[in-house]
């Protein structure tokens, strides 16, 4: 509680140093949102069940609600705010926007961070590999399909292909 001594530490988030004071039992999720005002990372359960708070540490997707902030000090933390370059959306974000992969948008930051990590390792993921990589990210709006299609489209574009989504995915069969 408030009487507990705070610790002072410098985090590297999206390539920028953030020096913050926080009580040591706080999770990375809490410190990102409450001490650094990086509210792009969402919370849905704070028990590691929904995937909404997914961020990357050292390029690996992790649930920030299950990571103590002190354990992330000195590591390379990346959040959804770090995906776009300036005002340019990353291809993954662009494809999600174009296909309606974000409905309410609440799971989107977590989905993007998990998918971005997948595409770093695998430039040509199959549908099953995408499903596997996102199995920890719940989405209640989309039925996941537009998310899968957005990731596939983004992967193709990142490979330099002039890809389009299938006609069926936009207009139905």
């Amino acid at each position: 509680m408030s009487e507990l001594n705070k610790v002072l530490a410098t985090f590297q988030v999206n390539g920028e140093p953030h020096e913050v004071a926080f009580v040591p039992h706080k999770t990375l999720l809490e410190v990102l949102r409450e001490e650094m005002a990086l509210t792009g990372t969402k919370h849905g359960c704070e028990l590691g069940e929904c995937g909404t708070c997914t961020v990357q540490i050292g390029g690996m997707p992790v649930l920030s609600c299950l990571v103590l902030a002190v354990d992330a000090v000195g590591k390379d933390v990346r959040t959804v705010e770090g995906l776009a370059i300036g005002s340019d959306l990353a291809p993954l974000q662009d494809c999600m926007a174009d296909l309606g992969g974000a409905q309410c948008g609440y799971c989107t930051p977590g989905v993007l961070m998990a998918a971005d990590a997948l595409l770093k390792d695998n430039t040509r993921p199959t549908r099953d590999e995408i499903k596997e990589a996102l199995a920890g990210n719940l989405c209640r709006c989309t039925g996941y399909i537009k998310i899968f299609e957005a990731i596939e489209l983004a992967a193709a574009r990142m490979r330099g292909e002039d890809a389009e989504p299938s006609k069926e995915s936009i207009y139905g069969s």
Partner: peptide, 21 residues
């Protein structure tokens, strides 16, 4: 036409502000 939603950009950027934000 399959036009982007008017709020699509902020949603995929993590910049949409929900109540707890």
């Amino acid at each position: 036409k399959p036009i982007r939603k008017v709020d699509a950009r902020s949603k995929v950027s993590g910049l949409t502000q929900y109540a707890d934000d």
